[in-house]
């Protein structure tokens, strides 16, 4: 494909806050630590669990078991797969890998004539990590859900302020807050405001091989993904 010298660049939904510039190394004090995990790949996965072959294909392509319980999250070294509705899941991984996965999945769905699909949402979503001793308290300031009760390895879709978000709790260290691009400015400002009493700081996020989402930070950021 001739690129005619084009040099595409990506900007994440929180790009304008220039978070990298203020990010500092995370310390063990009581601050609220927060940052965006930019440029991940997201795909909405739709399918019917009653159709033979659907769950198997998903497992086969992604290595992730299709979560069947409300709010359950399947985790693997290459990404996560979250239950969002009885016939809907959200797949999060590195952009390039996600593009490969969705191509394979859609190919497989078509070949097996399954009533299933993926919908690329990589441009429309982003993820912020929120940690520190009071990270659940910050959520309690903004949303009416009983955030303390989210089991590890679960996701809950609810409301923070006036925005719908998904809160993903994989470990006790912090939570991931998933939100839509156009709401990103609002959600970020809201988190920053609520965290103010505890000391809000942007932290550097480090790639961690044992973590399904932090692991994705290790891979080089793609300059261009051709879907």
């Amino acid at each position: 494909m001739p690129k005619q010298g084009f040099q595409p660049f990506m900007e994440s939904p929180l790009h304008h806050f220039k978070l990298d510039a203020e990010a500092q190394a995370r310390r063990a004090d009581g601050r609220i630590w927060c940052n965006e995990l930019p440029h991940l790949g997201y795909a909405v996965l739709r399918g019917d669990t009653a159709e033979a072959g659907f769950a198997q294909l998903v497992q086969q392509v992604t290595g992730l078991a299709l979560p069947l319980q409300a709010g359950a999250v399947s985790q693997g070294p290459q990404g996560v797969l979250m239950w969002t509705s009885p016939d809907e899941w959200l797949l999060v991984s590195h952009r390039q890998r996600l593009a490969d996965w969705t191509a394979q999945l859609d190919g497989g769905f078509a070949a097996q004539q399954l009533f299933a699909q993926t919908v690329d949402s990589s441009g429309g979503l982003t993820l912020a990590w929120l940690g520190g001793t009071e990270h659940i308290t910050v959520l309690r300031h903004l949303g009416v859900y009983d955030f303390e009760s989210i089991p590890l390895g679960h996701m809950v879709s609810t409301v923070l302020g006036k925005a719908t978000v998904q809160v993903i709790r994989l470990d006790g260290d912090g939570v991931f807050v998933l939100f839509r691009r156009s709401f990103a400015d609002y959600v970020w400002r809201l988190l920053r405001r609520a965290a103010q009493p505890y000391g809000f700081a942007v932290c550097q996020l480090e790639a961690r091989g044992d973590h399904p989402l932090f692991a994705q930070l290790a891979a080089p950021r793609p300059s261009l993904i051709l879907a």
């Binding site: 900007e11 939904p13 790009h15 304008h16 441009g123 300031h141 903004l142 302020g161 006036k162 925005a163 691009r181 156009s182 709401f183 990103a184 400015d185 609002y186 400002r189 809201l190 405001r193 609520a194």
Partner: peptide, 18 residues
């Protein structure tokens, strides 16, 4: 509460806002 000033209401921005 927090629903004042810049967080009074949701302001949605497009990717081209800058």
């Amino acid at each position: 509460g927090p629903h004042v000033g810049e967080t009074f209401d949701v302001r949605r921005y497009t990717a081209m806002h800058a």
